[in-house]
Amino acid sequence: MAMAAFRREGRRFAPLLHPNSITAPRSSLIPQELDPEGVRFISTQVVRNRMKSVKNIQKITKAMKMVAASKLRGVQTKAENSRGLWQPFTALLGDTPSIDVKKNVLVTISSDKGLCGGINSTSVKMSKAIHKLNSGPDKETKYVIVGEKAKAQLVRDSKKDIELNITDLQKIPLNYTQAIFLTLELVLVDKSSQAGLISVLADDILKNVEYDALRVVFNKFHSVVSFMPTMSTVLSPEVVEKEAEAGGRLEGLDSYEIEGGETKSEVLQNLTEFQFSSVLFNAVLENACSEMGARMSAMDSSSRNAGEMLDRLTLTYNRTRQASITTELIEIISGASALEG
């Protein structure tokens, strides 16, 4: 109340003293310059407007949270089911994240839209670290970026290493055919035949990304609030064969019998192609799932923040209103008593 009185006094004398000296250190909630000169009471209009806008923002974030929650449910079952696709491969071929090969392709998976916490920066950070680990004088590491957000971040300092950029993946629900086409974009083996198959894929644009090892970086979904930046490695058939001969983790491959007239290298080639498409499928789904989870929690906390802000604003608003009413009353009463006395 004393504050309000002071404020009023200040306004009255403000033009006499100095136009802005008194208003400067005060909170920006009630910008004094918005009130016309000579107004006796503090206008609550600004706070009211602010309250309205905060309320609207809260509504929006709440709605976004609901949307994310319902989308999450659908994509979560899909992601969990798709884990069964790559798990046998890891059991068979093992995961060899530390393998040292010449041509690396880093597939960074991110989302197209923002407002989903830090999932995109985590996968970008992880990709950058892996890029650093795998770069050397005679080595080549290229980025293939899925999603708009990682592109925006990687363009800044490593745009020379970007090979391919794929966006708009989530306009329709993710499915395995999409993963197949993505894989085809990445590991296209023969340009001409592809052009014959799908006339849309113009053959001159499609130059295959040659690789020894593909590293897919994505956010693996654990729960709504936790996801792990993960890398899965897919080796090219030649490398798999070399590794199998050298022993180590891939040794178990020889104990399998191969049916039919196919040789081991053919089987391996088919296998790695399928492995890559299923790993990619799973990665895209897991990342979409993490995105929705992250968006849910981000929107939850922002609606909570908006609520807190609204509380604070309401308090300020009520206090100011009450103060002005009190002053008015005091003025009336003292005026009346002056007349009586």
Partner: peptide
Amino acid sequence: REKVHFSVAKWVDGKPQKPRDEELWH
């Protein structure tokens, strides 16, 4: 269920080439 939609842009020398939309009804 198996529709395909995405857009691909190839990068040459640090610059994105014209993106190509991929939209197939399977």
